[in-house]
Simulated scan of single mutants.
Amino acid sequence: MKTFLKILLTAVAVIVLANILPGISVAGYVSAIIVAVVISLLNMIVRPLLIFFTLPATIVTFGLFIFVINAIIILLADKLVDGFAVSGFWAALFFSILLSIFRSALFSLLKDDRKQLN
C-alpha cells in the first residue's frame, strides 16, 4: 500500500514540476503515473550500476556526479515513456533536483508516527 502511495505522490510531483519547469512536459495523469513507475524501476535497477561504474568520478567530484546520474535517469525515462518529454540535459538536471526535494517532502507525510512506551 505504501509503495502505491509513493508512486502516486511521485506522479503528482511529476505533474506539478511539468507545469512549473519549461522544457518538461507530461501528456496526462496516466503518463505521469507511468513516468513515476519507470523512474522507480530505473532507480532500483540502473542507478546502482551507474553509481558503481562512475565511482571514481563521484569520488573526485565529492559526490556531485550523483546529480548527473539522476539527470541521466530522467533522460532514460524520457526515452522510455511516450507521453513524457524533456528538452535537454539541464532541464533533466533541474527536474531531478526538484523531484528529489518534492519526493522527500511528500514521503515525509507517509512516515507513521509510532508512540514509544515509556
Rank of each mutant, 00 (worst) to 15 (best):
F62I: 12
S96H: 04
A18I: 02
V37S: 08
Y29Q: 08
V30R: 10
V46E: 07
R103Y: 08
S96E: 07
A11K: 00
L49G: 12
L17S: 08
V12A: 12
I66N: 12
Y29P: 01
V16A: 15
D112N: 12
V60S: 10
D78V: 06
I45W: 10
V26E: 07
V81E: 06
A18C: 02
M44T: 14
I24C: 05
V86N: 04
F94A: 06
F102Q: 06
F4Y: 13
S104Q: 13
V81N: 08
F94G: 01
V81F: 04
V68E: 10
I69W: 07
S25D: 14
R114N: 12
G63T: 06
V81S: 07
S25H: 13
N70W: 01
T61R: 05
G63N: 07
M44P: 02
V81C: 05
G63S: 07
I73G: 10
A85T: 12
A105C: 10
I39H: 00
I69D: 10
Y29V: 11
A91G: 03
D112F: 13
K6F: 06
M1W: 13
L76F: 11
L110A: 04
I69E: 08
L42G: 03
F67P: 00
F107M: 03
L98K: 02
A32R: 02
T58P: 07
A11L: 02
F53E: 09
L8N: 11
A13T: 03
K111T: 10
V68N: 06
D78Q: 05
L110H: 05
V60L: 15
W90T: 01
L5A: 14
N19G: 14
I45D: 06
I51H: 10
I74S: 03
K2V: 11
R47W: 09
I74H: 05
A85M: 11
L80Q: 05
K2A: 14
L106T: 04
I72C: 07
M1I: 11
D82K: 13
L5Y: 15
D82S: 15
A85C: 08
V37A: 13
V30P: 02
V26D: 06
L75H: 03
V86R: 01
L98E: 07
I7S: 08
L109Q: 09
L99I: 03
F95V: 01
I69A: 08
F65G: 02
N70D: 13
P56L: 05
I74L: 03
S25W: 05
T54E: 09
A13R: 01
L75A: 01
I51G: 03
I66S: 09
I51Q: 14
G23S: 02
V60W: 14
I15E: 12
D78I: 01
F94D: 00
L21S: 04
L109H: 08
I33T: 08
F84E: 06
I34P: 00
S96F: 01
G63V: 06
L8H: 06
N19C: 04
G23A: 01
F67V: 04
S87T: 05
F89Y: 13
L64M: 13
F84Y: 07
D113G: 09
F53A: 08
A105R: 10
R47M: 10
R103P: 00
I74V: 15
G23I: 00
L41W: 09
G63I: 09
F89G: 00
A85Y: 15
P48L: 08
I34Y: 11
I45F: 15
I101R: 01
F4A: 14
L98R: 06
I97V: 14
